[in-house]
């Protein structure tokens, strides 16, 4: 369901966005602050083999996530102009599970069933004959006996360009379709997420609370597998700061402690371990993802943390 044309348009936009000078950025922020009610960011949910993924193509949304909410995600698309490198990547932006839960739970965003939403949008455009591009494909087999000049006319365009910017409202183009009608609940998202992973409900809750605890302290957070952990912390935007800490969710063995501490120190970082203040918190085990479970995600995390680094002697 990822269309090539939409991607390349967004890349150009993202280059433009980089070139904007600081004054216009300031005025942009002014505009955002003036708006009394900001519409929720739409998080397009794509289910591949039952594993739900959030992929964002809208550059404005990506900017808002980063500047306003400190949500980074990972760019995973190729830059069409520079396909031979993978240091700088382009849209879509993939969000990881804790970012998704945090955005939805905080009320900044809502999940959308992107597959059905786009299919229905395409159908509506097609039914009205609103084809917005000139991609012409021969639909009928060429008859070698026919020398008809009208063959070109019998061709039919089979690409339908639907804009990346999705709307909360019914519009001129989409009278019967709006994104809000395709909302997916956090419950359904987590249900299919948990089914597709080896994590239990309680682990998901505990790890999410770790993420929330760190987010509350103002850290910028990236996935941490590159450094052998679960998360990596930055004191500010990673474009301006080096990361400081590798977060490990489940530090249970002294051997991990030594391995992790030594590795982190060698890359000028430390290891952060997080645990529950009250261990009975974890006992509230639920067998299924129900409303009670979703509500428990919103609870204030009661966590404590320690930073580990090699002492430099011994």
């Amino acid at each position: 369901m990822i269309e090539a044309t939409g991607g390349s348009i967004d890349i150009e936009e993202s280059f433009k966005a980089v070139e904007i000078d600081s004054t216009s950025i300031q005025s942009n922020q002014q505009v955002i602050l003036d708006t009394t009610e900001i519409p929720k960011i739409l998080l397009p949910l794509i289910s591949r083999n039952g594993q739900p993924e959030v992929l964002i193509f809208n550059v404005e949304d990506i900017k808002r996530l980063r500047d306003k909410y400190g949500i980074l995600g990972i760019l995973i698309g190729t830059l069409a102009q520079y396909p031979q490198q993978n240091f700088f990547l382009s849209v879509p932006l993939k969000l990881f599970i804790w970012e998704v839960i945090w955005l939805v739970e905080s009320g900044y965003a809502q999940l959308i069933d992107q597959v059905n939403y786009r299919l229905d949008k395409a159908k509506e455009l097609q039914s009205k004959g609103k084809l917005q591009n000139n991609n012409v494909i021969v639909m009928t087999k060429k008859d070698p006996n026919s020398k008809s000049a009208s063959q070109l006319e019998s061709r039919e365009a089979n690409f339908i360009v639907t804009p990346n910017t999705d709307s909360h409202k019914y519009s001129k183009d989409y009278r019967t379709i709006c994104a809000d009608d395709y909302e997916v609940s956090l419950k359904d998202y987590l249900k299919s997420y948990i089914e597709s992973t080896s994590l239990s409900q309680n682990q998901v809750r505990s790890y999410y609370q770790n993420f929330k605890y760190l987010k509350k302290q103002g850290f910028f957070i990236n996935p941490g597998l590159k450094f052998g952990g679960d998360l990596v912390l930055y004191p500010g935007d990673p474009l301006r700061f080096h990361s400081y800490s590798i977060v490990k969710f489940n530090m249970v063995d002294l051997q991990d402690f030594v391995v992790g501490g030594r590795l982190a120190t060698s890359v000028k970082k430390n290891i952060v371990i997080i645990g529950d203040v009250d261990e009975s918190e974890e006992d509230g085990s639920t067998e299924e993802v129900n409303d009670e479970f979703i509500q428990s995600l919103a609870k204030e995390p009661k966590k404590m943390s320690f930073s580990i680094e090699w002492s430099g002697f011994g």
Partner: peptide, 27 residues
């Protein structure tokens, strides 16, 4: 605080444990 981890081969290794999340040392 510092943790002194003792192995049965005579090795002792020392690791710092800081309270909360702190900036790593600049070496």
């Amino acid at each position: 605080i510092t943790i002194g981890i003792v192995n049965d081969d005579g090795t002792v290794v020392y690791y710092f444990i800081h309270d909360g999340i702190v900036k790593p040392r600049q070496n």
